[in-house]
Design a protein around this nucleic acid. Sequence first.
DNA 1: ACCTGAACACCGTTCAAGT
DNA 2: ACCTGAACACCGTTCAAGT
Lengths: 183, 183
Amino acid sequence: MNAPRRRSDAAENRARIIETARTVIANSDELRLNAIAKQAGVGQGTLYRHFPTRDDLLAEVYRNDVEQLVAAAPAFLAEHEPLKALACWFNRVADYARIKRGVFAAVETAVWRDLSAHSLGPIGDAVTMLLAAGKADGTIRADVDARDVILLIGYLSRLDETEWDTRARHLLSIVLDGLRRRE
Amino acid sequence: MNAPRRRSDAAENRARIIETARTVIANSDELRLNAIAKQAGVGQGTLYRHFPTRDDLLAEVYRNDVEQLVAAAPAFLAEHEPLKALACWFNRVADYARIKRGVFAAVETAVWRDLSAHSLGPIGDAVTMLLAAGKADGTIRADVDARDVILLIGYLSRLDETEWDTRARHLLSIVLDGLRRRE
DNA sequence: ACCTGAACACCGTTCAAGT
DNA sequence: ACCTGAACACCGTTCAAGT
């Protein structure tokens, strides 16, 4: 299932590609595949061998961040009421989205892709968990699902740096209000 | 201010470009500039002469739709309570967004561009009007502006055709709830 | 097995030459 | 004034040739 053979150079190349992509994204928010390959010191074909699609590369670059985001959900639930936990999780998402713009876009496509595979993906599962707690609790309306929430907070990836402070958290709180059960 | 000279062929070309773009968008949702020029029977340079940026072309294509959307706001306000008027307007936006995917994207960029020019643009003004009525009325929270609303309903342009029926209006109602004044 | 990089395809954009 | 379309620039993607 794992432990691929002949990894000596292949694995190194793979790691170097990811590292290069991470650095490039951190500094410029753009991701030109040929440039990554050159900068990583590999041929373009090698990049495509390891990452058939652009999303495969992005998923790898943001793997860690996504995992931490997912892990935060049960942690918040253990400490807070469901609605408060969801609010905390929203804030965590906002933190990631601000520093690494790509995180959220990656999250969106990841969830979206897995959707067609009849699974919501890790992020979707985390949101589902938070929503379920709130529904059981009676604080969150029963007719929302993870996809709804992902769509609503998608504005985070379209927010300009200059309006971040005034809008990001403000809008999250509006969304949260919309998710509350009425009365 | 208007009535440009030598319009005989120039105006015709311009009109044909717009018409071609409208048809192409309606059928395929893609917009390749060179293809438009060829199909309209003009050189690429001519297209650029008339529409320096892609957005200029889109704005022209959707001019009518945007105008109708703007005109609907005061009409709804005349007939309904502010909150109900906003709900109606949301539904109208959804109608447009479904048929012509590009409308909303065009709206977003139009608002966005005008923002930097210290004006919200026609759509922004329409939303501002609806919000103002609701605030005066006490049904809409005081701390939201037109940009907030545009960002929140931006998911409409990212919605897949297959999930439109189940999500588009449902999410609009959640947003509306979020905009309500609490208690 | 894995890698390289020339080559191809595709689009947007410009500009010298035409009318 | 306005138009044309060859030409350039830029990127993503493939694949024959190498090791």
